Simulated assay, not measured.
Amino acid sequence: MKKNDTPQDKSALASKNHKELCYAVNEDGEYVTTKSSGWQPKTIALNNALQDIDERVALAKKRVLNNEASPIEYYMEVHRMDVSILASYVKLFKWQVKNHFKLKKFNKLSNKILKRYADVFEISIEQLKHIDDTK
């Protein structure tokens, strides 16, 4: 794309002080960097991805409130993690983290393991045990 054609569409992430760095071709045919406030197709894709995340968070919260899953699943979704990432942060195997999604297993976890999860989510153990059902 030519430098003068760099998209400047409105974006949820862009503001007056925040623009994305892009490459474009200048008048001499050379690649140069330029700033863009957004590009509509990219904004649509980003909004769709964020909507999917919100839906996964809502589903995880519903499962926790219905005693079908542990709060670990909910907080993992809130923090936009997957099992692999969470497992690496808490220094456990993926199968162990998945096992901790089960309420019976979660209720038997030691404070030491709960502290690892709480530290990753930057909350207290008490907050980890009880999600806020008003949000």
Rank of each mutant, 00 (worst) to 15 (best):
W95R: 13
S37H: 04
N17K: 11
R56A: 11
T33R: 03
G38C: 11
L13N: 12
K135C: 10
F106L: 02
L128G: 11
F93L: 07
P41K: 07
I131C: 09
K3G: 01
D9A: 06
Y74V: 01
E73W: 04
I53N: 14
R80Q: 14
K61G: 10
S70P: 08
Q127M: 10
L109M: 06
H18V: 14
V97F: 08
H79N: 15
A118V: 01
T134W: 03
K129Q: 14
A14M: 05
Y31F: 14
A14G: 14
M1E: 10
A69K: 10
A14R: 03
N26K: 13
I72H: 02
K42W: 15
A69S: 14
S11D: 15
A87M: 12
L103M: 08
Y74N: 10
T6W: 02
H18S: 03
L114Y: 00
V64Q: 01
E30S: 11
W39L: 10
A24F: 08
S124N: 04
Y117P: 05
P71V: 01
D5A: 09
I123S: 07
K61L: 10
I131S: 11
E126M: 06
L92P: 00
K10S: 03
V90E: 03
N67R: 09
L109K: 01
E30P: 01
W39P: 02
T134C: 11
L86W: 03
E68K: 08
A58W: 05
K62Y: 04
K62I: 00
Q51T: 03
V25C: 10
K35V: 05
A87H: 05
K10N: 04
R80W: 00
P41S: 05
S110C: 02
Y117V: 00
L65I: 06
H100S: 00
N67T: 07
Q96F: 06
D82H: 10
K35L: 15
